[in-house]
């Protein structure tokens, strides 16, 4: 909880009594009779929500330690619902679009392109980055909530590509933002993009908190 109390009141933890047994569905047995810690979720920021939710979940699962179960649960949820930013810089965006079309259907991996950076945790830099667009790219990256990842798609985003010595091209997007996965190709085929996303999922699986 890094929020300053002078700016915003700390989230209020309350106890929520479960509904009477007659109203409860079967299958809620682990919680039966227990007072579940309840946090006003609406009052939380995203970076406050994750530790609060971990705490709530951890109190429900008492028999296993937090390190062995809770971290992997959030990791698993995150890597199976990677939301890339829906934007296109150059011709790689055509392959990016094809990867989300009917034939390759990236959505079967839980990858759904979102139009707002605030809903995204993955930035796929699909094209040539010029110095003119550089600060806008950094702004979009800063607007994405943590944890976030970057895939440099294609030769231009990886190292400037054929325009490396051009007067206006950033020689690799890793000059601007940290890159997790590089995909070679000019442009890479949709299979290569999907392979890059699956590689990123492996990296996230091995990630330590």
């Amino acid at each position: 909880m890094s929020a300053s109390p002078s700016v915003r009141p700390a989230p209020v933890a309350r106890s929520m009594t479960l509904p009477p047994e007659s109203l409860r569905l079967e299958g809620e047995l682990p919680m039966a009779g227990a007072a579940v810690p309840f946090v006003e979720i609406e009052a939380l920021r995203a970076r406050e929500f994750i530790p609060a939710a971990k705490e709530a979940l951890g109190s429900l699962i008492s028999n296993r330690s937090r390190e062995t179960l809770i971290g992997p649960v959030f990791n698993w949820a995150g890597r199976n619902s990677l939301f890339p930013l829906h934007w296109g810089l150059a011709c790689c965006a055509i392959e990016f679009a094809a990867a989300f079309g009917a034939r390759w259907d990236a959505e079967r991996f839980g990858v759904v392109a979102r139009s707002s950076p605030r809903q995204c945790d993955l930035m796929i830099v699909n094209g040539t980055v010029t110095w003119k667009v550089a600060h806008k790219l950094i702004t979009l990256y800063e607007q994405m909530p943590e944890p976030k990842w970057v895939i440099a798609m294609g030769n231009c985003a990886t190292g400037g590509g054929p325009f490396r010595t051009a007067y206006s091209v950033v020689p690799g997007v890793d000059k601007l933002v940290p890159v997790d996965v590089y995909i070679a190709g000019c442009p890479p085929r949709p299979e290569a993009l999907l392979d890059g996303i699956l590689t990123l999922e492996k990296l996230i699986r091995e990630r330590k908190e």
Binding site: G160, R164, T165, Y167, V169, V170, P171, K175
Partner: peptide, 9 residues
């Protein structure tokens, strides 16, 4: 003159 990318950067 064509610059080296690092120099231009």
């Amino acid at each position: 003159k064509i610059h080296e990318p690092e120099e231009l950067e």
